[in-house]
Write a protein that binds this DNA or RNA. Structure first.
Lengths: 259, 259
DNA sequence: GGAACGAACGTTCTAGAACCAGAG
DNA sequence: CTCTGGTTCTAGAACGTTCGTTCC
């Protein structure tokens, strides 16, 4: 901590991030030899440049690699300096006075350590920013087109969903109807069987001992129901019919779809 | 057609769209009195400015409302003039030569009528362009967010569609199964009736004249099938069973949904 | 005639962009 | 080589000025 930046002369060590332009500018403004062309303003908050022609030709080359006032001003702006605009006082000020004043909040006479706070404006990696902006303005329409396309797909899908929903509802109704019919059929079958049993019992009571064949295998349905194509006893038939499983297929609950 | 723009002096009438800057510049370059500070290049395709300090202080105020070289250059650029860059020939050219050269394809010595083709670059009505660009870059994120949102909805809808598709397939399978069971049941019923008919005919053949009651109305199913709770003749039963309608509910075709 | 308005041009200050140069 | 700062030319942006048009 030997160099704590207190002095205005000597080497600045700690955080020597100050670019050459700022140190050169500071030296330039401080130098008494150049005061006729560039010097601090009386209050030390800004500096003046007199006679840009002489300044650019005589002073700038000593501190920079050019002799153009425009380049000097460009650098000042790059570092955040602003030109101090003077109000024209009519004819009170002689119009030939070539006086330009620049100012920066951290460029103060006697406060050289503040130079560290002056930052060069970052060039937005021209390619990136420009291309991004160009892409933005150029591709906004593309994005919107894509969004429109997606919306169209959404609508198509919506109609498909509605169709499927209706189909689903019809299917559920069909399933319910079929189940009901199946139950009714089953009851009819049961009653038929019960009637048959009663009939057979009545025949037995009447002394009929003759065995009655079950002629379930006629020619019209032999090919479609081969397992019933043989002759069965009445008891076997009854057992076979009642053993038919109840309709209970596992089904998901009806899906709810927003219309 | 008295004034056909051929002369280099006098009033230009037809299409006097040439801004003051261009006519002033032309006069300035043509004027022999200012040749030491501004003049045509030897081939007449460009002009030179020597000693910017003297030029800006002595010449510019005579033709414009300022004495700043920067403003003059800005106007040149606004009208499409380009600076002609000179290749530095090492020490062969004296470095102190203050020589600036500008060129425009329609600023040619002796071709004053071409000035009409020099157009000032339009200022993009700063507000509009800037706001549009800002809107673009600001709203791109919004659009992208919306797109993401839509994508999320798409995925949700996709899963719903898949669920509905599976449900639909299960329903179709169920319907097919139920129809098959119904058909089988119907065949069974038909065969039972056929058997009954055969049985009754056998009984008749055997001389049994006693009328056999149809006891289809037992206590266990009387409440669920009231229309069968009375006694029917065998013929009536058969007709009733065969009159049960075939399962033919109008259903849409299975919906095809992309997975 | 003249007041109000708008469009194009003019002036000024600042920033963009391309290119260069030197340090790490 | 890459990265940061420097130099140069051009453009952006804000504001002023001029001039023609319109409406009273």
């Amino acid at each position: 901590m030997e160099f704590h930046g207190g002095g205005s002369a000597g080497i600045v060590v700690s955080g020597n991030n100050v670019p050459a332009f700022l140190t050169n500018l500071w030296t330039l403004v401080e130098d008494p030899d150049t005061d006729p062309l560039i010097c601090w303003s009386p209050n030390g908050n800004s500096f003046h440049v007199f006679d840009q022609g002489r300044f650019s030709k005589e002073v700038l080359p000593k501190y920079f690699k050019h002799n153009n006032m425009a380049s000097f001003v460009r650098q000042l702006n790059m570092y955040g300096f602003r030109k101090v605009v003077h109000i024209e006082q009519g004819g009170l000020v002689k119009p030939e006075k070539d006086d330009t004043e620049f100012q920066h909040p951290y460029f103060i006479r006697g406060q050289e350590h503040l130079l560290e706070n002056i930052k060069r404006k970052v060039t937005n990696v021209s390619n990136v920013k420009h291309e991004e902006l160009k892409m933005s303005s150029d591709d906004v329409s593309k994005i919107l087109t894509n969004v429109q396309h997606i919306k169209g797909k959404q609508e198509t899908i919506d109609s498909k969903i509605i169709a499927m929903k209706h189909e689903n509802e019809a299917l559920w109704r069909e399933v319910a109807s079929l189940r009901q019919k199946h139950a009714q059929q089953q009851k009819v079958v049961n009653k038929l069987i019960q009637f048959l049993v009663t009939l057979v019992q009545s025949n037995r009571v009447l002394g009929m001992k003759r065995k009655i064949p079950l002629m379930l295998g006629d020619s019209s349905s032999a090919h479609s129901m081969p397992k019933y194509s043989r002759q069965y006893s009445l008891e076997r038939l009854q057992a076979s019919l009642q053993a038919s499983p109840a309709i209970s297929v596992s089904l998901p609950l009806p899906t709810t779809v927003a219309g």
